[in-house]
Design a protein around this nucleic acid. Structure first.
Length: 470
DNA sequence: CACTGGAGCCAC
DNA sequence: AAACGTGGCTCCAGTG
């Protein structure tokens, strides 16, 4: 497959990008090595205790009898064999090679404490193995220097390795805290994380040139993820809780934009409602109960070959999807034309000047022109911000990048100037340079306490004359 | 013993 | 017509 940056502009972006990222790598992130060692010791003790507890369980005796000296308590395959084959619980599916699925959701309906505890232990092992150990292995004199690559990704996004700085836990609050406490600013300083808000949706609107999407991305009172959650769960916009919005974003809007369809989305959205505490914003009503009171009591068969039955959740989500495609009808038609044109030519060009040539799936065609240019907005901003810091001889250091955000280590005396400069570059300068960004861009800023840690980051806002904690 | 690929988990 | 995109890393299981 021949892939290359096609224009001078695209080439320049990669060249300057690699120079700027080399600086980021050299800067490095400060690590609280004392905490890291203490946390490792504690978690290893916990892993040992929890392992011994599992080995006393009667389910483990069955396991032992089955596998003898081949017994490996960490093996998901063996766990699945014991639960689904010996104890005859129903397995919800097989993997590509015909083995039992052994991911956590495959055991959702298994009510054995042994299984719940096994997954708790598995989470701890992952936190220790991949993250705490992964970080410690790479620390040099108290600093971590992850690689930030521009040459590994099909869509011309970036990646990170040794260690991967772009998948540090955050969604699981306990594990997130455990790991993120390792990352600290230099003495007397703060860590600052600057995100593009809803970047991929904004780029989608610009790329597909859909007036209704552009309107959505341009109107501060509108929020596509919240509004679609409301439609999916039959509530008003005001009733959408944080969890509901999260589901709307990750189980409807992104899947829909990147080529999924109502059957898959209905399953996931319905699965979310079975989580405990999946409630409306009033914090009393379970979404599952709310739906039941609104005439939707079951998911439906989810068989793509059968017509959906009115009154099922699946039927409802199909209507939400139809409505989405009607409202964003330019998006719906542009993507068909985009796919047809590619099939004729065998290559396509991104808004940032990159040419992608070769055999690709339909869904790749939908994702690549959004994912690539989204990251290019970040890379362009990082380059400009680095130049600005150099020009004015700031002590602020850019220390990392995660696809749509920049992490910096900032002396408190430079914080205000730095935030104003970053905002200017990321929302104004970039639109002067790249006219195809026909939607406003926004930044979201998080700052840690002085001498705090990454886990303690909290949102800051601009109040008209300065940046302050929200 | 070295290596490989599957499966799972972490992020955006 | 077909059915969610991109990565990195670890452990396990199997191979030679």
């Amino acid at each position: 497959m021949k892939i290359q940056p096609a224009t001078k502009e695209a080439f320049q972006l990669l060249l300057e990008g690699s120079l700027a990222l080399a600086q980021v790598e050299a800067n490095g992130i400060r690590i609280d090595t004392e905490y890291l060692n203490k946390a490792t010791q504690q978690i290893e003790t916990e892993i040992k205790e929890k392992t011994e507890a599992l080995q006393k369980d009667k389910t483990f005796r069955i396991w032992k009898r089955e596998f003898g000296d081949k017994t490996k308590i960490g093996s998901g395959d063996q766990l699945a064999h014991v639960i689904f084959s010996k104890l005859k619980y129903k397995c919800p599916g097989k993997t590509a090679t015909g083995k039992y699925r052994s991911d956590q959701s495959a055991f959702e309906d298994v009510d054995l404490p042994f299984v719940k505890d096994w997954f708790k232990l598995d989470k701890l092992k992952n936190a220790n193995g991949t993250f705490l150990n992964g970080i410690r292995r790479e620390v040099v004199d108290g600093y971590l220097h992850p690689s930030f690559n521009l040459n590994t990704v099909e869509t011309f996004r970036g990646s990170s390795s040794s260690p991967n700085f772009q998948n540090i836990p955050i969604r699981n609050p306990e594990i997130g805290k455990l790991i993120r406490q390792c990352f600290i600013p230099r003495k007397g300083r703060v860590l600052v994380e600057i995100d593009f808000g809803a970047l991929e949706f904004r780029i989608s609107a610009a790329f597909w040139a859909d007036p209704k999407m552009i309107e959505y991305a341009s109107d501060k009172t509108k929020d596509i993820h919240r509004d679609q959650a409301a439609l999916c769960y039959k509530t008003s916009n005001d009733q959408v809780s944080k969890q509901m919005r999260y589901a709307g974003k990750n189980q409807f809007v992104f899947p829909e934009i990147y080529g999924s369809y109502y059957v898959q989305m209905a399953r996931k959205l319905w699965e979310s409602t079975s989580k405990e505490n999946f409630k409306l914003k009033d914090d009393k009503t379970l979404v599952r109960d709310w739906l039941a009171n609104n005439g939707i009591k079951s998911l439906g068969k989810c068989n793509p070959r059968q017509r959906t039955r009115p009154g099922t959740f699946e039927h409802h989500i199909k209507e939400v999807e139809d409505d989405f495609n009607r409202r964003f009808n330019v998006f719906a038609s542009s993507k068909e034309k985009w796919w047809r044109d590619y099939q004729k030519r065998g290559w396509f060009r991104m808004l940032t000047g990159f040419i992608v040539s070769g055999v690709y799936s339909r869904n790749f065609l939908m994702n690549c022109p959004i994912q690539g240019p989204g990251f290019h907005c970040l890379l362009w901003s990082l380059i400009e911000l680095q130049k600005w810091l150099n020009k004015y001889k700031f002590d602020t250091l850019i220390v990392g990048e995660i696809h749509d955000n920049i992490l910096s280590d900032v002396p408190i005396c430079e914080l205000q100037d730095f935030l104003y400069a970053a905002e200017r570059i990321m929302t104004k300068e970039i639109r002067k340079a790249w006219k195809w960004i026909v939607v406003p861009l926004e930044v979201e800023v998080d700052v840690t306490p002085v001498d705090g840690n990454w886990h303690q980051k909290a949102q800051w806002i601009e109040n008209g004359s300065e940046w302050v904690p929200k």
